[in-house]
Structures are given as C-alpha cells and as structure tokens.
Nucleic acid binder design. Structure first.
Length: 438
RNA sequence: GUGGGUAUAGCGUAGCUGGCCUAACGCGUCAGAUUGUGGCUCUGAAGACCGAGAGUUCAAAUCUCUCUACUCACCCCA
C-alpha cells in the first residue's frame, strides 16, 4: 500500500499495543520525582526564539542549526523547544515561583524538537523527563539531583549504567582554563581537524571530546579542568564526591565531559550505557548557576537533568526490563439479537458506574466470534445474553480462566453479584499464588 | 553535508547463479469445522501492481543505471 502521507523523518508513533511501555516509564518517573518532593510543571511547546538563543547559547549546535523556528503572520519568531530547562526557568520566573521560597523542585515530561540527522536513539521529536532544582548552591543539591536520576534508572530496572561526573568550574576559573587550552593547542593549530581549528577560538573545551584520532592524540596531554578550578569550585566538587560516596552511588570522574549547552557551570554529569548504539547518554545534566540571572531574574543557583525517554525505553527493552501490563477487561457481554443488545447497554452502564471495565459487541457479530474476541482482549468474565436469558431474568457468568459458570441475575442485583464474583476471583487468584509458595 | 546497509501482503521473512513466481511461509485479520459459548487443532478466504523510474532480454522480484525512502555511523546530544 502506498500511503499518500508518511510520518515526518525522525518522529515516532506509539501504537496501542505498545503504549503500555510509555505508561510504565511515565508512572515510575513521576512517582519517583514526587517522592523526592518534585512537583510537575507544564509549559508551552514553543517559546520565543530569543529564549533559547539567550540560554542554550548562540554558538551551540542546537541553536545554530537544529532549531525548528516558525513565524506566523508578522509575529515574533517562535521555536519548538529543543530542550526543557530554558522554558521551565522562564515559566518559573514569569509566574513568580522563585518567590515562593527555596528550594523549588519541579519535574516534567515533554517532547523536544531538534532538526538533526536521525540514527539509533536520536530523533527529531524526542521525549524527555526532566528535573530542576532552584535555589540551592550547596553540593547537597547536586548529590540529591543525581540521586533522583539514579533512583529512576534503578526503578525502571536498568543495569550497567555508568555515572560520569565532572566540574567545568565557574565562569572565572573556566576562562582561565580556556586560555590554558588555547595556549596548549596553539602550537598544534595546523595539525587539528578543521572544526577544531574553529573551536580553538570559540570553544576550546570541545576539542577535548573530538572523535578524530589525531586530535585525540594531541589532546592527550592537554591541561585538565580540574587543575584549574578555583578553591570554591574545588571544594564544591570534593563535597559532591563525598556525598555521592555516602549515598553509595558509584561514579567515575571524567574530565572529558563537556556539555553542549552553554548554561552549565560547575557540576556536570551523564549516565551512560553502551548497549543501544552510539547515542549512549541516557541522562545528562548539571548545574547552571548563571542561567536565571541571564534570563532577567535575580542571581539564583540551580541545577537539573534531562533523561531521554526513547533511549531509556531502548535500554529497558534491550535488557528485558519489566513493564506494567494494560488493565484487562473485567466483563464482556456477548449478545444475540436486538433485545439482548438493548439489555447489554444498561447492564454495561451500571457495571461501569461501579468502576468495572466492561465491553460488549459493537460489530454485530455472531456468538462464536464474540467469544473469540472476549478471549483475545483477556476478559475475566463473560455473560451470554439471548432471548432465553431475557425471558428468565437470569444468566450464566462464565469465568474465562477456569471455564466455570455461575448464575447471575440480570435484575437490580446484577452489579452486586458481579462485584462479588470479581472479589472471589481475585481471592482465589491470591490463594493459588500463596499455595504455590507454601 | 559525508559514508555503509536495506527496500517483497498489516507485521516478520523466503525467493535474488533471470523462465516451474499467474510471488511462498509464519504471525495477525475474517469465515467455517454440532446453526447458544473462547483458548488447542484443522479447513478456507481476504490481503502484494515484489520502493519508484528507465534499460538489457524472447523472458526480471531476480541483472544494469538513476532516483526516493528507511536505517546505521561521523558531527552533536537526551
């Protein structure tokens, strides 16, 4: 079949048979964040372009070549958010959340848009779970945020995820370090790859994680940021490491981690896997003490992380993690004839009123196909309704797992009797499980 | 933008030293197998102009070329 329109490159559909996977991670992720005292924040899908230019950074790849920017009818320019932090900070400032006392802790699940070349684990529209903590300069906050990310990864069941941390210092020590890097690389200018020659001026730290083998060799003996941190930044980093150790969170210090967004200061971290291809960063984050001031707020320390949900799901599937199944149908009412169908309508409504998951025939099929359908959707119970039952006012309630049939009234007592059957069913299910254990 | 790989029914695949392919198999879908009862089994049906276009040939899903899409990787990041 030649479809007239296909989905845009880099987007993904979640079909009904797979949505339970998303429900699982969304549930775990938000419940965990709430246990840490984070509350959900929701923000618009697009923002004024200037917000991202100001926060993410004019020279970053994200801003320079990956933003989906639209303008409508002479309005200002808008951009589909390429990440969550900038919009969340804007929203917190605009709504005065910063004035409600510190720390403020928020989380969100949202889609982000970047016009990149797609590959495994990298989409143009992707989903991110993010957390932000505003108002604490303490390394305890760093440890707490990392602990939250770690906790989420543990609870979805991931194994072999490594935590890398680094400090890229405050603007002062970072500038000293940049100069040191320029001094180091300058003599090798001609040996560097072309992009790194450009980086030498604008962002020499990027040369450190260049993939080119030649550049790697040159960078091998380059000065390390950690040797250039000021006393405060050093102490902050030392404390963080100490806290992580106390929390029993394993980590490695990786001086090569350089975040691609300009707003980061001091602590940066990544949770990495090698199991899903080249895009192994499942979670990335750090501190951004200067961002809020840059956006026009008071100077306020803050930090957070983003977790790529598609990547998370890739690893979960790869590792065979458990997912929560969708809720199954409690009762299917099979009908034969118009009278029965009419009766089924009122019975269904009554049972749903009590919270039960009920279905009945919508396609006007025969009894046998209806039974097959009931089986396919995993219905626990089935009632077959025909003229006999309508006349007598009673029917058989069939337990699909055991095949056992019991009497059930079609009158006022119907819902109550069905509830009782559900309770008994649950109870015997528990008994079986316990019996197996004893 | 630069490379590699792949393109056959809803999904997953076979066929690819050209003719037996008027395209096969598994899953799924639908319908039957005691016309008022599912799961297993059996039978049958629907469903593909073999990614698109051109060429070679008596003959192409199978060979050649072009294009397109998808995919993996570089870059960058979640």
């Amino acid at each position: 079949m030649a479809l007239l329109v296909k989905k845009p490159k880099g987007t993904a559909d979640v079909v009904p048979s797979k949505s339970y996977m998303w429900h699982t991670v969304e549930k775990i992720v938000s419940e965990t964040a709430q246990q840490f005292g984070f509350r959900e924040i929701r923000i618009p899908t697009f923002e004024e372009t200037g917000l991202f230019v100001r926060s993410v950074g004019e020279t970053t790849d994200v801003v320079q070549k990956e933003m989906y920017t639209v303008s409508a009818a002479g309005d200002s320019k808008f951009t589909l958010r390429p990440e969550g932090t900038a919009g969340v900070m804007r929203a917190m400032l605009e709504n005065g959340v910063m004035n409600e006392g510190f720390p403020q802790k928020v989380y969100y699940i949202l889609s982000c848009f970047r016009h990149e070349n797609v590959q495994a684990g990298r989409l143009r529209e992707f989903h991110q779970f993010g957390c932000e903590m505003v108002g604490s300069a303490s390394p305890r906050a760093d440890a707490e945020v990392i602990a939250l990310a770690k906790s989420v990864l543990d609870r979805v069941g991931l194994k072999n995820i490594e935590l890398n941390i680094n400090s890229i210092g405050c603007p002062e020590c970072r500038e000293k370090y940049r100069q040191a890097l320029r001094d180091y690389f300058e003599p090798h200018r001609d040996e560097l790859c072309r992009t790194c020659q450009d980086r030498l001026e604008k962002n020499p730290m990027r040369i450190l994680d260049c993939k080119s083998a030649e550049d790697q060799a040159i960078a091998k003996d380059a000065p390390m940021i950690l040797d250039y941190l000021c006393d405060d930044c050093t102490e902050h980093f030392e404390k963080l490491k100490q806290y992580l150790t106390q929390m029993n969170i394993a980590f490695s210090v990786n001086p090569r981690i350089v975040r691609g967004l300009d707003y980061y200061t001091r602590t940066v971290f990544e949770f990495i896997t090698t199991e899903i291809g080249a895009q192994g960063t499942v979670c990335g984050g750090g501190r951004y003490d200067g961002l809020i001031e840059q956006l026009g707020g008071a100077k306020t320390p803050a930090l957070g992380f983003g977790m790529g949900l598609e990547r998370l799901l890739l690893v979960m599937q790869k590792q065979g993690c458990d997912f929560m199944e969708d809720k199954k149908c409690d009762l299917y009412i099979a009908t034969m004839g118009e009278n029965a169908a009419a009766k089924a309508l009122s019975m269904t409504a009554a049972a749903r009123e009590e919270g039960f998951f009920v279905e009945y025939d919508l396609v006007e099929r025969g009894l046998k196909p209806q039974m097959k359908y009931a089986d396919k959707i995993g219905a626990r119970f089935v009632i077959v309704l025909g003229d006999n039952e309508i006349d007598s006012g009673a029917a058989k309630l069939k337990n699909m797992a055991t095949g056992e049939q019991t009497d059930i009234s079609l009158g006022d007592a119907f819902v109550e009797q069905f509830s009782q059957a559900m309770v008994n069913n649950m109870f015997s299910g528990l008994e079986d499980e316990l019996g197996g254990l004893v």
